[in-house]
């Protein structure tokens, strides 16, 4: 049975459709990337998945159960969320933030137990930040902050993690650190990741690392194409999705590793465009 199954999902604000007819299935140990231009409704779709918004049509099943019938704490035991941008308010320590991942396991009148603390410590160790446990998280760099958010999601002990632009605003190194952490998680712990991203290359990154990966192109209110990155992220599809000219190149790193990447070249109607075509 798929961990997450969405059938015929549709949602709109005040009668204006944001998306419709969306279907997807995510199984254990799989990365599902949602790719699409700005404003195509990726975040809204993720909000529906998380139960923050209610679908107008269709159903979301978590492990076969309809999300409408599941209470928030139980949804939070299946789906963890790593936000796109986390607004920092109070300078909590890293440990205090990660412990918040244990909320769905903690009664309304109680606080985290020693067992919760050791789970949070494990989560911090997985992202490699155990040294930072007593630092105020407001003083961390963007990449480290993102790793703390991932650790918090890990402390939630869910089979699925949902990420919205997990590498937005990060430099190359921190971007790779986050991606490497994700690959490790999927490989070693069998977690599944559903992520929205502006970088289709991320899908190639997972595929290049032999992680089972699906990509959905979100276009014209729905998932226009779903499949393996190698098939879906073609020059033709990128052209119709983003209105750009791009090349998909492959580089032989050594004899059993091939690295695929997209090189965006120009928008369709620019001067450069004539040369490419």
């Amino acid at each position: 049975m798929p961990l997450v199954e969405v059938s015929n999902a549709g949602f709109g604000y005040n009668g204006r459709a944001i998306f419709k007819n969306i279907n997807l299935e995510v199984r254990e140990g799989e990365v599902f990337c949602i790719v699409g231009p700005n404003g195509c409704g990726k975040t809204t779709f993720l909000d529906c998945l998380l139960g923050l918004l209610k679908l107008d049509q269709g159903d979301i099943l978590l492990g076969g159960r309809n999300i409408k019938t599941i209470r928030p704490p139980d949804v939070a035991k299946v789906l963890a969320y790593v936000p796109q941008s986390h607004q920092k308010t109070f300078p909590y320590t890293v440990m205090e933030i990660v412990l918040m991942g244990r909320a769905s396991y903690t009664g309304i009148f109680s606080s985290p137990s020693p067992a919760d603390i050791s789970i949070a410590e494990e989560a911090l160790a997985i992202v490699g930040l155990q040294e930072y446990r007593n630092r105020p998280y407001t003083q961390l760099s963007g990449g480290e902050g993102q790793l703390v958010m991932i650790a918090r999601a890990l402390a939630q002990k869910t089979p699925v993690i949902i990420m919205d632009e997990p590498t937005a605003h990060l430099d190359f190194k921190h971007e790779l650190t986050v991606l490497e952490t994700m690959v490790q998680l999927v490989r070693n712990t069998g977690k599944s990741v559903i992520m929205a991203t502006h970088f289709p290359n991320h899908a190639f990154y997972f595929e290049n690392n032999d992680v089972p990966t699906s990509v959905a192109l979100m276009d014209k209110l729905t998932f226009s194409v779903i499949g393996r990155p190698g098939e879906v992220l073609s020059e033709k599809n990128l052209k119709s999705l983003y209105r750009i000219n791009a090349r998909v190149v492959s580089y032989q790193l050594d004899h059993n590793t091939e690295v695929k990447q997209i090189i965006p070249i120009s928008t369709l109607y620019s001067k450069e465009s004539e040369r490419v075509n």
Binding site: Y92, S110, Q156
Partner: peptide
């Protein structure tokens, strides 16, 4: 005093508090 730890989670904002498993309206 009884719900004090929940206030930490509420201070993450409605969105995150909800995804962390809180019934935000009740809390």
């Amino acid at each position: 005093i009884a719900v004090r730890w929940r206030i930490n989670i509420l201070s993450m904002g409605d969105r995150e508090a909800h995804t962390l498993g809180l019934n935000t309206a009740l809390s």
